[in-house]
Write a protein that binds this DNA or RNA. Sequence first.
DNA 1: CAGAATCCGGCGAGATACTG
DNA 2: CAGTATCTCGCCGGATTCTG
Lengths: 150, 150
Amino acid sequence: MEDGTSKALGYCTGTEDDEVRQWDTRADCDVRHILDRVADKWSLLVIALLDRRTMRFSELRRAIDGVSQRMLTVTLRHLERDGIISRTVYPVVPPRVDYELTPLGMSLHRVIKSLVTWTEEHQQEIAAAHAAYDERVAAEEPELVSPRLG
Amino acid sequence: MEDGTSKALGYCTGTEDDEVRQWDTRADCDVRHILDRVADKWSLLVIALLDRRTMRFSELRRAIDGVSQRMLTVTLRHLERDGIISRTVYPVVPPRVDYELTPLGMSLHRVIKSLVTWTEEHQQEIAAAHAAYDERVAAEEPELVSPRLG
DNA sequence: CAGAATCCGGCGAGATACTG
DNA sequence: CAGTATCTCGCCGGATTCTG
């Protein structure tokens, strides 16, 4: 098991005087952890799927398709540890394990959706920025190759 | 210039029937990109700092303290390419480069703050979940060692 | 001062094999 | 079915060096 996350979360000591300072310190603590979950490639999908209904391990595996069995396990453990999802094992054979969003997870899902919404609303601006940037870069590159070697 | 109708960032083909399906596909496109920025260790700090005022490269370097020169450069380039920050070079010696948040960046900063706020509001729940999880795990581990070898 | 280029070590993620 | 354990490999991020 590669825990990766340290124990507890610990409330970082920070001076309330400086708002940014708080961010800085916080960033090393709770926020960083949650952000890592939110940004995680698979976490998002899992949360989105579980927001609809309870699902079994193999269901998630098939639904996400592309995720390795290992990464799904790791992702689910992380989410469970953070209290975002709950894991229910039924002592039957063959084994059956259900995963579902906790109230906390549902709450998080709403916040995530707002982020996704923001991205959707600004995707044109971002795309335009990309195009502009790439064009700018492309306009400077040519310096390197044959600068008028006649 | 920014018509957005044609290529843009590539509007993922997806069936509007399924909401989760949209998430899935989107996750491979724009959302993933922005999420990577948001979750990035240094991006957050840069955005938070620039939200207060324009800053020079070395100012950011010193303010963040812990970031390598390379990663700061990479981070700034990414943010610039996404249109989140703007980069202004003054043709003076010694060189001077100013970075500042664009309107898009300010907009993103607000969304990020809401995420940070959420984390702060729920940090106790998360910490409690961690404690509960670790306890549960700790309670199951002992099975492995000395299983009543009488 | 602001950065580009290069080298390199660690770990995160995938594939595989095994188990209850 | 629902995982664990192990190995390997890619690449991300840090340190260092060089430039305009």
